[in-house]
Amino acid sequence: MKPLSYKQPPITEAVIEIKFVTTFDPVRLDEANKKFAKNYPQHQAVKQQLIKINLPNKEQQGSKATAQREESVGHRRSDPDVTQLLLALPSSFIVSQLAPYSGWEAFFKRFVRDWNVWKRVMGHNEIARIGVRYINRIDIPVVDNVARFEDYLNYYPHTPTSLDPVLAYAIQTENYLSNIDCKLTINSAVVEAPILDHMSFVVDQDISREFNPPQKDSEIMSLLEQIRLEKNRIFEACITDKARARFQQI
């Protein structure tokens, strides 16, 4: 199916994440952070704390419980409008785009640019996971006090009619995409609408390769392009023509 492009895409956040098997040296992470300052002038430190607690078992009576705290610092950078984000974390490299979303080409181009900078500074580290996540929010008008989401969505829970009306829901499904050897996770839920006279429904899809992810750049880019086609196909399958009509409005 040819991917549709919308005047008003409902994408609230698009993300590409590369996760690594081991963590990077903090000094090199700081160096990478500085390299990104030109394109992402805003900076926030991201502190992660991991506390490991060892409790003695029955055979170790008399021993004391021990706790170990590990702290790591990452970097969250953004452009002045806070719509283009980049995260340089000890074990992850993440590029994110908030609305307004200008299309895959622009987003992917930015990812490639930043990925090249990252690799130059950080060197090689085995990739553990490659993931692409698209969070969409579909604003459905409330007419006569009812939002008929089934007219706009093909992805929603099946409930007995005796339980009508549905006030809210949250669902998750996982699927295996055999054609690209990836896992698909879809979350969908009713969320607070940021505009009047509407109810909002999030359709949040995550496609990832966790088993034997590609390590070479050409293969990584090829996989991301494949994921792109799949995420378009899946999103189109999750919505109806009535929803598509809303995204064309300006």
């Binding site: 099946h158 009306p165 549905v166």
Partner: peptide, 11 residues
């Protein structure tokens, strides 16, 4: 606002 499900869907 309330929302209702009318259409039958697959499991």
């Amino acid at each position: 606002p309330i929302i209702v499900v009318k259409a039958p869907i697959k499991a």
